[in-house]
Simulated assay, not measured.
Amino acid sequence: MSTWKTPESRGWSFTERLITGYGAGIGEFGSSYALDTGTGPLLNGRISANLRLIRNRGVGAGLVCRADDSWNFVAFYTAPEEADSPATFARFGVYNEGALTSVVNLDEPIVLGTGYNRFSLEFFSGQLRGEIKTKDGHYELLTTCVAQPFPGHAGLLRLYGTGLMATDVIVQRTTIPLTQEAVAAEPVATQYDFDVFLCHSGTDKDLVRLIAKAFAANDIRYWLDEEQLTYGDGVATKIADGLQRTRYVVPCISANLAKSGWARAEYNAILNAEFSGDTARIVIPLVLDESDAENVPILLRDKKRAFYANKTEFEHFLRFLTQRTPA
């Protein structure tokens, strides 16, 4: 019995040696995906496969990880800038209930071979590494994961109704970090430049400014977007750099936070690492108002949290940051 499945009723065929995908997908990008359930849900792992795209223009395909049946997953894939272009670009993107948000793409274009091209995707803690090997070259893309840190399945992705043939698909659970080359390519903070990274909804900006003022008065170094970002900056790149250089990530909990995709992405990347055993950075929720339980995201409810509205509690939090943050 095949361990592969798809949330769609048609469009994929599975045999022992060959997986094929065909026909139109759904949504703006004509997306369709299939998952290997044989290894069970993975939080950390690898998937690799030989992929052959039937057309050579206007096509897109790749690999997914941490996927569920409801169109939530992280994708490493190729897609062209223009539909009739033979060149394509390696990309990372996040699907949230079918809506695709682009995370990062490789600047160098790729011309895929007409035969099979080897794709691989590694995901460990908060880091992702994608690799493509064609007959003419080798391409690699690294990024920090911004998806919800739930375990999920690995699998294959098609875009634009692309016909796809896949062979030699390997899915592995892993408890070791990415390959040494990939780890070395990421900047490593030997000393933190910031004590606190403030994640918040823009609606709570005035209140967060008061919190930042209290941090400054207590010599607590903080990262706040409006002070770190300027015109022309790549927002995702600056945020990733700020997270890398900060000891504690503090989501400011309120009814508004659930509506802020950026704030969720920021603290989810660090939660993902914590769940994988990496405690170099820690998430500490700071509740802004009295409506505690109903607004605290499920993944943060087991964490001891601080309270801004309770001035005694907040003073304890300031003291903790002053005593515990690295010099």
Results as ranks from 00 to 15, higher is better:
S48C: 09
L51I: 12
L53G: 00
R55K: 12
N56F: 08
N56Y: 09
N56V: 01
V59F: 09
V59Y: 06
V59N: 03
A61C: 10
V64R: 06
V64D: 05
D69Q: 11
D69Y: 07
D69S: 11
D69E: 14
S70L: 11
W71L: 11
W71Q: 11
W71Y: 13
N72Y: 01
N72K: 04
N72V: 03
N72C: 08
N72P: 01
F73T: 10
F73H: 13
F73D: 04
Y77L: 12
E81P: 00
D84H: 14
S85Q: 14
S85D: 15
P86I: 10
P86L: 05
T88Q: 07
F89K: 10
A90I: 07
V94K: 08
Y95K: 01
N96R: 11
E97K: 14
E97V: 06
G98V: 02
A99L: 10
A99I: 13
L100M: 12
T101S: 14
V104G: 02
V104H: 10
N105A: 15
L106C: 05
D107M: 10
P109R: 02
I110S: 03
I110Y: 04
V111D: 00
L112V: 01
T114W: 06
G115A: 09
G115N: 06
Y116W: 09
N117C: 01
R118M: 03
R118I: 00
L121T: 04
F123I: 09
F123V: 09
Q127I: 06
L128D: 05
L128P: 03
R129L: 10
E131H: 14
I132E: 04
I132S: 07
K133F: 06
K133P: 00
K133N: 08
K135T: 12
G137P: 05
G137E: 05
H138T: 06
Y139A: 04
Y139M: 05
Y139T: 05
L141K: 07
T143S: 13
T143R: 04
T143E: 09
T144V: 14
T144I: 15
C145F: 13
V146C: 06
V146D: 03
V146Y: 05
Q148R: 15
P149M: 07
F150H: 13
F150S: 14
P151K: 10
G152K: 07
G152R: 06
G152E: 08
H153R: 12
A154F: 14
A154D: 03
A154M: 12
G155L: 10
G155I: 06
L156C: 04
L157E: 02
L157F: 08
L157N: 05
R158Y: 02
Y160K: 12
Y160Q: 12
G161H: 00
T162E: 07
L164H: 03
M165P: 00
D168M: 04
D168A: 11
V169S: 01
V169E: 02
I170M: 12
Q172M: 12
R173S: 15
I176K: 15
I176Y: 11
